[in-house]
Simulated scan of single mutants.
Amino acid sequence: MSSPTLTMKCKCGAFEATFDSPPRVIFNCQCRSCVSIVKSIESREGFSGTSIKCDDESGGAAIAIYKSNNNTVVKSDKESIGFMKVGEEGKIPRAYCNKCGTVLFNVYAPNWCAVNRNALTNADGEPFVPEGEVMNVNCKSAFDASKVTGPKHNMVPFRMLLKFIPLLAGFGVDGSNTEENLIPEDMSKVEVSPITWE
């Protein structure tokens, strides 16, 4: 990998990763699954991490999507990584630092990852700020749509899907996203964020 373009660290420094390119896709996710994870982790007593919340009162998650080839984990302590899924039958483990509470990855998969955009910094150490307005997606599922500001879309727009689908299909990636500390050994032991909207 070439020299890093962006770095992601949790607030306490227990986890660090670098990225050798700008994000492939940037958005704020308003789906109930992402928002329930934010609420469950960031409402805990003692939370001191970097919030994954977007910059409005909606509670949406600020996400940056990368392909696996662009990510290198620099520092990862297995004891400091926790996982949370939505509901007992949840299939997506969200990795977070259990020391400070920073959500690290909203998704961590072999071909791609969804990163806490607010934890990214530029090479000079300044926070990463996306250019232009960031789209709010999955707004039809927002807990309170009146709190979602800026550009909105009820689902994920087709133009975003065109950038994202190749990652899901494995095109242009080598499946190298296999940092074992970021993949739970047993999904049945992953913490559960309750489903509160059914």
Results as ranks from 00 to 15, higher is better:
residue 77 D to Q: 11
residue 39 K to A: 12
residue 53 K to E: 13
residue 75 K to P: 00
residue 67 K to V: 00
residue 46 G to I: 08
residue 96 Y to G: 00
residue 96 Y to V: 00
residue 53 K to T: 13
residue 65 I to N: 05
residue 87 G to E: 11
residue 100 C to Y: 04
residue 102 T to P: 09
residue 60 G to P: 06
residue 75 K to G: 01
residue 76 S to D: 02
residue 65 I to M: 12
residue 40 S to C: 05
residue 43 S to G: 08
residue 74 V to L: 04
residue 73 V to T: 13
residue 95 A to Y: 06
residue 40 S to L: 04
residue 48 S to I: 02
residue 98 N to A: 05
residue 43 S to W: 05
residue 105 F to H: 14
residue 47 F to W: 10
residue 36 S to A: 15
residue 85 K to V: 01
residue 91 K to L: 11
residue 66 Y to P: 06
residue 45 E to R: 10
residue 67 K to G: 15
residue 41 I to F: 05
residue 82 G to N: 10
residue 34 C to H: 03
residue 46 G to K: 04
residue 38 V to T: 14
residue 95 A to R: 02
residue 77 D to G: 06
residue 101 G to R: 08
residue 88 E to Y: 03
residue 51 S to R: 14
residue 74 V to G: 08
residue 45 E to F: 08
residue 54 C to D: 10
residue 38 V to M: 14
residue 92 I to C: 04
residue 65 I to D: 09
residue 92 I to P: 00
residue 83 F to Y: 09
residue 50 T to V: 14
residue 90 G to L: 09
residue 76 S to Q: 03
residue 41 I to P: 00
residue 89 E to I: 05
residue 102 T to K: 01
residue 53 K to P: 05
residue 50 T to D: 05
residue 55 D to P: 14
residue 82 G to H: 04
residue 53 K to Y: 08
residue 92 I to R: 01
residue 103 V to M: 10
residue 66 Y to F: 15
residue 60 G to I: 12
residue 55 D to N: 15
residue 90 G to P: 12
residue 79 E to V: 00
residue 92 I to S: 03
residue 52 I to C: 13
residue 77 D to C: 08
residue 91 K to C: 06
residue 37 I to E: 06
residue 57 E to K: 15
residue 69 N to I: 10
residue 54 C to Q: 02
residue 93 P to Q: 13
residue 61 A to K: 10
residue 84 M to P: 07
residue 81 I to M: 00
residue 64 A to Y: 02
residue 68 S to Q: 07
residue 107 V to E: 15
residue 48 S to C: 07
residue 104 L to S: 02
residue 43 S to K: 09
residue 72 T to V: 14
residue 67 K to A: 12
residue 40 S to E: 13
residue 55 D to S: 13
residue 85 K to C: 01
residue 106 N to F: 13
residue 106 N to D: 11
residue 45 E to I: 04
residue 91 K to T: 06
residue 77 D to V: 07
residue 45 E to C: 07
residue 96 Y to C: 00
residue 87 G to F: 07
residue 71 N to H: 08
residue 84 M to G: 03
residue 52 I to S: 14
residue 49 G to D: 03
residue 85 K to I: 05
residue 54 C to V: 06
residue 93 P to R: 06
residue 57 E to W: 13
residue 57 E to S: 14
residue 81 I to V: 01
